[in-house]
Write a protein that binds this DNA or RNA. Structure first.
Lengths: 155, 155
DNA sequence: AAAGATTCCGAATAATATTCTGAAAATAAT
DNA sequence: ATTATTTTCAGAATATTATTCGGAATCTTT
């Protein structure tokens, strides 16, 4: 990542991070710049893959997704790590797959309707992945904060 | 959540989830509807809090945030749970705070520049929260998948 | 079946995005 | 230092999109 971001870029990212649908005109106003100049910067940020995606956060309850869980997965060997990981990643209910340090190998975040559908998912999808030794599931009772916004420090 | 979402709503959510900046005109085209009708639905989804926010996903590496960790926190009693949780939630580097089942009480997701800044954060912020008995930190070596998109099943 | 509410379309208008040219500023080269 | 080169910006022109609104169609309720 050989990218230089100046203060204006950081301000743009800061504003857009919280509101991806802010208009170019508004952005320009906040930055005291011309819309055309701001647009140029935004396009460049997209092109440089600093901006990865514009996402809409949907209320999980509106889609009846009430259960959130973290599953630690222990596997046999280090060799097939990448394959196991990508197999897990393909499951739509799986929101995150991390390879972690320590005796557990993978940490997986899953969102489903309820505990019954989590069990079904475990049985039908996760436990069928080869080379899994054991799983340890942590159920979330309540989520107090959930975002992926980054801390942006302006100069 | 007493919300009825029909198939068109689900399609809108499905499209916007992946691209929050899709234009109303494009949305309308994909749904074979008039832009005005689609706009009305989107506004309604915002109002009903089905749509929570439009976010821009920024590449963490571009902001030099290379370390991701999950911290399990064990606390004294159940009483002050909410307070501890909201204290943790106020830390900007903390992306997620969950109250979980099991002996560990909280699961916290943190993103920082490097291990040094994680240590600093632990010392200066997290361990200063009252009533914490112990913490157990899991360092992420590699993230294979990370999103919060929900599974949308159309009827 | 009638009344009421909701959803949709289409046209008009308002606002915004986008493109382009040239000037200014920053950077690099001589 | 001075000149070239590149980058960034502003402002105007144009293209595209968002938004509003009236009325028709559809669906719900009574």
């Amino acid at each position: 990542m050989d990218i230089e971001l100046d203060d204006i870029d950081l301000q743009i990212l800061d504003l857009m991070q919280e509101n991806a649908r802010i208009s170019n005109v508004d952005l320009a106003k906040q930055l005291s710049m011309a819309p055309s100049a701001v647009l140029e910067r935004v396009k460049k940020l997209e092109q440089k893959k600093v901006i990865l995606q514009y996402k809409t956060a949907i209320n999980p309850l509106a889609l009846n997704q009430r259960l959130l869980a973290f599953i630690f997965i222990k596997t046999k060997e280090l060799e097939s790590d990448a394959k196991i990981a990508s197999t897990l990643a393909k499951i739509p209910e799986v929101q995150e797959v991390h390879i972690v340090a320590g005796e557990d190998c993978f940490l997986v975040k899953v969102r489903t309707e309820d505990s019954a559908s989590l069990m079904a998912l475990m049985r039908k999808e996760i436990k069928k992945v080869p080379n899994i030794i054991s799983t340890k599931t942590t159920i979330v009772l309540e989520t107090v904060k959930e975002q992926q916004q980054l801390v942006i420090r302006k100069n």
